[in-house]
Design a protein around this nucleic acid. Sequence first.
DNA 1: GGCTGGCTTCCACTGAGCGGAAACCAGTTA
DNA 2: TAACTGGTTTCCGCTCAGTGGAAGCCAGCC
Lengths: 264, 264
Amino acid sequence: MAGGSREPGRTVTSKVLSILAAFEQSRGALSLTDIAEKSGLPLSTAHRLVNELTDWGFLSREPNGRYQLGIRLWELAQNTGRQLRDAARPYVQDLFSLTGETAHLAVRTGHEVLYIDRVYGSKRVPRASRVGGRLPMHATAVGKVILAFEEDWVRDAYLNRQLERHTAHTHVDPKKLAAELTQIREQGYATTLEEVRLGSCSIAVPVFHTGRIGASIGLVLPTNQAATMTRHLPVLRGIAAQIERATARIPLETLLGSHVAGTD
Amino acid sequence: MAGGSREPGRTVTSKVLSILAAFEQSRGALSLTDIAEKSGLPLSTAHRLVNELTDWGFLSREPNGRYQLGIRLWELAQNTGRQLRDAARPYVQDLFSLTGETAHLAVRTGHEVLYIDRVYGSKRVPRASRVGGRLPMHATAVGKVILAFEEDWVRDAYLNRQLERHTAHTHVDPKKLAAELTQIREQGYATTLEEVRLGSCSIAVPVFHTGRIGASIGLVLPTNQAATMTRHLPVLRGIAAQIERATARIPLETLLGSHVAGTD
DNA sequence: GGCTGGCTTCCACTGAGCGGAAACCAGTTA
DNA sequence: TAACTGGTTTCCGCTCAGTGGAAGCCAGCC
């Protein structure tokens, strides 16, 4: 063995993928050294693989020498989850047009909500979520709704973990949260008040598919509108019903792949 | 050599990437055999690599055994081109709200236009474009606009190729096309009439950044509205100006990576 | 002109990858 | 029930692609 830090048993594939995964942690472009560090690879190895990824268009090199995810990757990934996003998009837009507030479409992956789509106006609201981003379920309205209507074992498994606290207002007591979820199931919607980020509150309703909870749509508003949030409920419910109708024919598994399955 | 069909010199990386690339050609899920075929790999090799990709969440396996691009890839890719898309999104939405027609945001990659964003209503129009999809520049309004305002050498290089014909109305004569581009540059907008697909026409205007053509926004309409298309010009120009203002501060290269550079 | 931090190239050793073959596993037909 | 079919999974010994330390390179800075 040449030097000592060889790490046998590591597949080439895992090295390539960990290079791509390096871009998950940080926005923006990375230098070769950054990539090598984040992916835990020797510099020369990283160099060789990064070059090959660049040739294939999966990474792109900026004029300043740093690397960024290539546009080919983006093109490729547009195919994922297209069914649900494409079908729901016009309705999420309507939701925004009718309320004037930032509108979200989210599903569950494991223990988190994944934001599938997001429609907002040019007057920007401070945002915690972003398309393709995740947040914990117990701190968001869309998350709570999904959790509330999920099967028992999913909910139990979720509550059986340490619940992360984002602000002073995040509900992290499992007992109280369980009670809240019951109430959400009864009233058919969930709200949050500064539980992810100070200054904003949110309200969400479920979107069902073949009898099961499939997704959730919600609005995020500035805190000062918290008291009157529920006035948006009729619109939310109307739009949810439309999305349910529009997606009813598409089999659940092709809507978003089979990602909704795993609990982690 | 074991059997004979070993293909020496092929890197593992290229094999992994060609598996991902297999999903570019076809929508929908692929069986292992499909993947092996499309990527030109022996079945057992494909099997091993596909498994590893699945473990990493870059592919996902549906209940029926077929494979689909994993959601992790989608999450990852959301970071690409985020700047332009995020900044422009609200305005593209406005464009749709104000006109009621399918609105597009597109940029150039190589010899094609790449659709970055797309806003449309629930009354679906037959569509040739899709987000993440490409079309030739000479057959689309957004493409013609970009080509018209590009630097000379880009335009010359483009016209110097065999121009693909999509319908009987596609303009494929280089001379005539060059004249058309000159006119587009003078009048500040481009139109098409059934040049990609029968039944639809389109109109587009340029979006500049630091003096150069950066992107284009456009509308697609049913052919019967072709005669009155230009009534949307004021809105198109207004929205373009707003996008220019919103993106002016962001350096061009971070807007979409450095993909705009290459001519292939 | 020497230093520093990052990128690129080189090359001989070696274990990860290879892929043909055979087993396996539904469906489906005889 | 058995044979067939089309796809998936497992196995294993050979071998060459991958490896990564080291040295060279380059640009900017003190």
